[in-house]
């Protein structure tokens, strides 16, 4: 399913945080959103999810404006996977995933066996069915991210918005989570994720959206869009981009680097 932002302007009352931001993504695309801290990534996601209303401009899902849609309707189109954060209540993984079906369960009723079965299927499709009865607070950060991913899948939305999916995850868990995210792209989901690591964009994204000062600095496939010059402008540090070959497959890598610069 496609998602589109048209000429978004947004302000929290003062100066504009988003300035004329336009963007379009189709089914199967994996879009990495890059940009320095405070550039408006969260605001942009807020607008895509319908939490924040742009001053002018609009967001369209499958060509229909999301403004004015009910929360339930919106939830069937776009799902949100938050950053890893500790939680107060230790729900089982299965219960956590079942919550994703809120938009399909009438207000005064509870999940039926069929809902639990669907939650199990989602867990199986992500390879974590064995965690169903574990407390979601006592599994690893990577496993919890996958559980949240399963929760987004049962919501039946085809656009997934992920806020730094690998924040606070270790090296191995980051890789495992992102592999699953990549598979979802192949399954036809539209995935939009923010990241602070250009190498993740190179490694997993089919497209990069680089934001600076509330506008789009670059938009395109990572290999052509993420140049040394662009990364330097984005982050204010020197960056070298190189290629490396692993078992015949070519990967691009970015390395922060200042000419003649030495660590202090």
């Amino acid at each position: 399913m496609s998602i589109e932002a048209r000429n978004l302007f947004f302000s929290y009352g003062g100066a504009d945080v988003l300035k004329d931001l336009s963007f379009f993504a189709e089914a199967g695309e994996l879009v990495a959103v890059l940009g320095p801290n405070g550039v408006g990534k969260s605001t942009f996601f807020g607008c895509l999810l319908g939490f924040l209303h742009p001053r002018t401009g609009e967001v369209l899902a499958e060509g229909k404006p999301i403004r004015g849609m009910s929360p339930r309707e919106l939830a069937s189109l776009i799902a949100y996977i938050p950053q890893y954060a500790p939680q107060t209540f230790n729900y089982t993984v299965l219960d956590l995933v079942t919550m994703g079906m809120t938009n399909q369960i009438p207000i005064f009723s509870s999940p039926k066996p069929e809902h639990r079965r669907r939650a199990m299927e989602a867990l199986e499709s992500l390879g974590i069915a064995h965690l169903a009865d574990r407390g979601s607070g006592s599994i690893s950060g990577g496993e919890r991210q996958l559980a949240l991913l399963a929760r987004a899948l049962v919501q039946d939305a085809r656009v997934l918005i992920m806020d730094e999916p690998t924040a606070n995850l270790d090296y191995g868990n980051s890789f495992r989570v992102m592999q699953r995210v990549q598979e979802l792209g192949a399954r036809g989901y539209t995935v939009i994720f923010s990241t602070h690591e250009p190498n993740q964009a190179f490694r997993y994204a089919t497209r990069v959206l680089a934001l600076l000062d509330g506008g789009v600095l670059a938009d395109g496939p990572p290999d052509t869009a993420l140049t040394e010059e662009l990364l330097r402008r984005l982050y204010g540090v020197g960056v070298a981009v190189r290629s490396a070959e692993v078992e015949g497959e070519s990967f691009r890598l970015s390395i922060p680097y200042e000419k003649g610069g030495k660590p202090q």
Partner: peptide, 23 residues
């Protein structure tokens, strides 16, 4: 008692609950 299952959703963050279609 009737809303008891829905109440689970108040324990997750506001943004998550809203994105799952909860008012």
């Amino acid at each position: 008692l009737l809303l008891r299952w829905r109440m689970n959703l108040l324990t997750v963050s506001e943004a998550e609950a809203r994105s799952m279609g909860l008012n």
